[in-house]
């Protein structure tokens, strides 16, 4: 803060605004993600606190399929990559490439959900449900909420994909960027969930 308080507040020519550089959509998306971080952060904090209080849940967490989880991590990471490539293609204005990579992202997202569904069905088959104790309650709540976010991302990406596949990028360039931000966020959440649930 300068000591020119008095001067600054008196009349002076209109000046450019330091913040106007950020497009509203992007800023809005960042604020949205900030609140999402608090939601997942709250859930994860509760999980960690309970885990500390319950001596680690070794026994329960032995029953999750870490290989499936690891595979899904790979799938989601790859999908983040394809999302970045789609955004790169937007910047170089190549609609067909954008469409291809968005399509790949959607397919990878669906793969993730499919694998997750397979995993759930195996767990249900083995008798593990949300009521089989606190670990499983957390497991299903956290991965379920995350899966819902993945699903929402797939819906958004599919809409953008159909637009891009028709060879038209006008008006959706920025939406692809914001969808990318969201998609990366969903990915990052998984990066936290995976070691917490599967590897500890």
């Amino acid at each position: 803060m300068s000591d020119a308080t008095m001067d600054r507040t008196f009349a002076e020519p209109a000046e450019a605004d330091a913040f106007s550089g950020i497009p509203p959509g992007k800023l809005g998306m960042w604020w949205f993600l900030a609140s999402e971080i608090m939601i997942f952060g709250g859930l994860i904090a509760c999980f960690i606190l309970f885990r500390a209080a319950h001596g680690g849940w070794r026994a329960e967490s032995a029953d999750v399929h870490w290989r499936i989880g690891a595979f899904n991590t790979l799938v989601l990471l790859t999908s983040s990559l394809t999302m970045v490539l789609a955004w790169e293609a937007v910047k170089t204005n190549r609609p067909e490439r954008v469409g291809r990579f968005l399509g790949l992202t959607v397919v990878l997202g669906l793969t993730f959900l499919g694998v997750k569904g397979y995993e759930y069905s195996r767990e249900f088959g083995a008798g593990f449900t949300p009521f089989s104790g606190l670990f499983w309650a957390f497991y299903f709540t956290m991965t379920g909420l995350h899966a819902l976010h993945v699903f929402a991302g797939i819906v958004v990406n599919s809409i953008l994909w159909t637009r891009a596949a028709r060879g038209r990028l006008e008006g959706i360039q920025h939406r692809i960027e914001y969808a990318g931000l969201y998609w990366h966020f969903v990915d990052v959440v998984w990066i936290f969930l995976f070691p917490l649930i599967y590897l500890s």
């Binding site: 604020w31 900030a34 609140s35 608090m38 939601i39 997942f40 952060g41 709250g42 859930l43 509760c46």
Partner: peptide, 12 residues
């Protein structure tokens, strides 16, 4: 925005 997230998780 900063405070409501954990309660949303709690409400879920």
């Amino acid at each position: 925005l900063l405070s409501v997230g954990p309660l949303v998780a709690g409400a879920v």
